[in-house]
Design a protein around this nucleic acid. Sequence first.
DNA 1: TGCTTCTGAGTCAAGTTGTCTCATAAGATG
DNA 2: CATCTTATGAGACAACTTGACTCAGAAGCA
Lengths: 190, 190
Amino acid sequence: MADSTDPRITRSREAILSAARELLREDGPAAVTHQNVAKRAGVGRATVYRHWPQPRMLLDDTMAGVRMPFFRDPVPPVRPWLARQMRTLADELALPEVQAVTAALFHGPSDEPDATVRREQLIATISGQLGTALDSATRTGELQPSADLPDAPAIIIGPLVFRSMFERRPVTDAMIDHLLDAIGTWTIER
Amino acid sequence: MADSTDPRITRSREAILSAARELLREDGPAAVTHQNVAKRAGVGRATVYRHWPQPRMLLDDTMAGVRMPFFRDPVPPVRPWLARQMRTLADELALPEVQAVTAALFHGPSDEPDATVRREQLIATISGQLGTALDSATRTGELQPSADLPDAPAIIIGPLVFRSMFERRPVTDAMIDHLLDAIGTWTIER
DNA sequence: TGCTTCTGAGTCAAGTTGTCTCATAAGATG
DNA sequence: CATCTTATGAGACAACTTGACTCAGAAGCA
């Protein structure tokens, strides 16, 4: 954790995390064990234990290494920005890695508090950014909301998740446009 | 499997399945092992093996025991029927048991073909029923769709799943109404 | 009552998990 | 280039899990 510059450490950590990510993607969170990871990474089992004494930490760092899509840096005009974010989100949700982490995130209620915290943080981030953007769009008159704004994340993101994770089909641009219209009326940008 | 009337068999099977369901709900699919289930059911470990030689079968029968919400028996007028179905779905998605099965369903890509098949069947059932209902509503003029009908399941169900599984907040009736309006214009029923 | 069959307890080999030790080699330091 | 430091891989180890088996006894059936 403390920034060691020893290249041996870096090398091991990277090999291990990369192997763990492969396992997570291919066989789910349960497959991310010290033994599996060590074998796949071509590394001694003890080395994995040295860096991550608890299996949970290993899984956490593995998931943290997968970049989850947020809605970043809202920029007016809001509608095109939001459409871009939704396209990005949809594209990333198609990646097996992101799907694996998403599935792991809302695993179970008592599946360790860590996962719960991580899920809540991700949701809070997404909802926060989205809320800020939609509020600002409403204030500037760009959007006349027809739905409760707190419902907007579910209305906009829910279908993308459903399409990617359940139906396993691609999200079309037309669907994104349609979802945007579902939260209210947008005034044309000059 | 063959209908044995021996009450000992029935008693064991029920105790085992009930314990397995508890474990699935509390600690996820990985916790449904012969050992855990036997201990929780107050049953010999060998007995669990006798009835379910493979752990996978045990998990499958456990998940099959949890009634998953479908959209059953479309009845005109479609809109109120659909609203009722969505309310039921939302309520059931709030149950930890249903959440556990839902999460287990779309676990990983190569997490055994069984889970994939089960997920695809559930989706096919839901989409099929929904599609039939919306088609009929369109034909009778009750609905003028504004979205691609194949997108309707995602638009309608996605937000309910997102709200329940990610945000872990209740689905309001207002949100259901709003989602119904998102797929098109409904003519007023006499 | 006697016969059948399911059950729980127990044993066993094989594999996994977490911990520890130690010779070695890779990297840092002079 | 020589020497010290430290991460590594291999292996040993006890504790535990998994799946398969045996067997006396209890529960159900006739």
